[in-house]
């Protein structure tokens, strides 16, 4: 008679247990460190950028969440804020910016245009950036209120804390000239 005990690993050595516990501790502390030091790359293409400036300024102050410092090079950033409408002509640029960001990286779709295309359902507009790159948090609104953005950042922080972090992540690197790798 098959029971749930059958699917459990038969032998868990003390080494495995200890390594698992250590890995969990490392993952938790790395997650804690990473969620409070989100360096953003603002990919600002449209009017949502004004709201982005507001949320970074003193009244709403994203710095309270450790996410205030925009880096204007994707290589120094780990949070891609796509702020505004992305059209078909810009999609390769967005894709390339996202590929230039070093791991670990997260993406926030800021505003309804970045999330779904918004009301630009026409020949020119990409219907949401998740057609091109993976998105972690969608912030709706046209443009979103700063409180919504802060809520989205807090949601992203909770997500980062829940993820598995490793000190060394061995992954096959993408090779130039080949197919762009899918996450």
């Amino acid at each position: 008679m098959a029971s749930e005990h059958d699917s459990l690993p038969v032998i868990v050595t003390r080494k495995d247990e200890a390594l698992g516990a250590l890995q969990q501790m490392v993952s938790k502390s790395l997650g804690w460190a990473r969620k409070y030091s989100l360096f953003q790359y603002p990919f600002v293409t449209a009017c949502c950028g004004m709201e982005y400036m507001t949320v970074g300024a003193s009244r709403y102050d994203l710095d309270r969440f450790g996410a205030a410092l925009p880096r204007f090079s994707p290589r120094q950033a780990d949070l891609l804020m796509v702020t505004g409408t992305v059209n078909c002509r810009q999609a390769p640029i967005l894709r390339r910016v996202w590929e230039s960001i070093a791991e670990p990286k997260w993406v926030v779709a800021f505003g309804v245009c970045a999330s779904t295309g918004g009301f630009y359902d026409n020949y020119a507009t990409m219907q949401g950036i998740d057609r091109v790159i993976p998105v972690d948090v969608y912030i709706p609104g046209c443009p979103p209120r700063p409180e919504q953005v802060i809520d989205g950042i807090i949601m992203l922080q909770a997500k980062i804390q829940g993820q598995t972090h490793k000190i060394i992540e061995r992954k096959a690197l993408p090779i130039a000239g080949r197919e762009p790798y899918e996450p």
């Binding site: 078909c88 002509r89 999609a91 390769p92 894709r95 359902d121 026409n122 020949y123 020119a124 507009t125 990409m126 219907q127 998740d130 057609r131 091109v132 993976p134 899918e182």
Partner: peptide
């Protein structure tokens, strides 16, 4: 021209 005749430059997921 079709209203939603999009011609994406990169492969969509």
């Amino acid at each position: 021209y079709p209203l939603r005749g999009r011609q994406p430059l990169v492969k969509e997921r």
